[in-house]
Amino acid sequence: MEGLKVSKAELMVYLHPSKSKNVTQAIDNEFSSMLFKYDETFDGVLLAYSASTKNELGKILPGLNPYFGVKTQAQLLLFYPKPDMFLEGKVVKLGEHSIHIIVLGFSSATIIEEDIREEFTHKVKHGEEVYASTVNRRHKIEVGTIVRFQVKSFDEEILHISGSLLQPHTGSVSWLDKHAEDANAESNIKKRKGREADNISASVDEDSLSLKTDHKNRKSKKHSKGSSR
């Protein structure tokens, strides 16, 4: 899953004079008040942190309340979903018009009808709603399934993601992973066989194509990770 990073930060934390007795705790409080909220300076949602100060001296700001600044080094675990990233989450509700997903237990995501590729059709089986693939019978999305989807947009205020299942390698994670393994194994066999005969089936072609794009995406992900630091 993309969208998670660990950042090292040098920050100046401004504390109220009344907090001067226990600075460590005050810094802790400052950070914990930012948890699960989007912060522009971090460009992401703070999920976890560890902060420390090396300098004993604070800088006092002039003013009515002489706030003082403390230099802090922190390691931050951030969640920063950006368009076109691939995220994973658990399906909590399915309907004819939408799929509702919760990512990492706190961020909600919705995939609307328009953004579900035509391969999936909505069915009601034994009173339970399911999105089933017409191409692969075993590829199903139901309540409780972990799905991989692409980010369309991210609402920073309420941490709501609008997602899509248009890309071919999106859908149920367990199926995708299993299928990728199978396809890998299969393609290895095919390679060996390929020397003997050149009759590669169309479906395998498709699969290897999707694997290639997946590979590319992973590469670009690494690249983007590096640059974001």
């Binding site: 939408s98 909600s108 609307i112 309420i158």
Partner: peptide, 12 residues
């Protein structure tokens, strides 16, 4: 309920 879940803008 569906409105609230459809987009972050409608939750509040």
């Amino acid at each position: 309920v569906s409105l609230a879940a459809s987009s972050g803008k409608f939750v509040d």
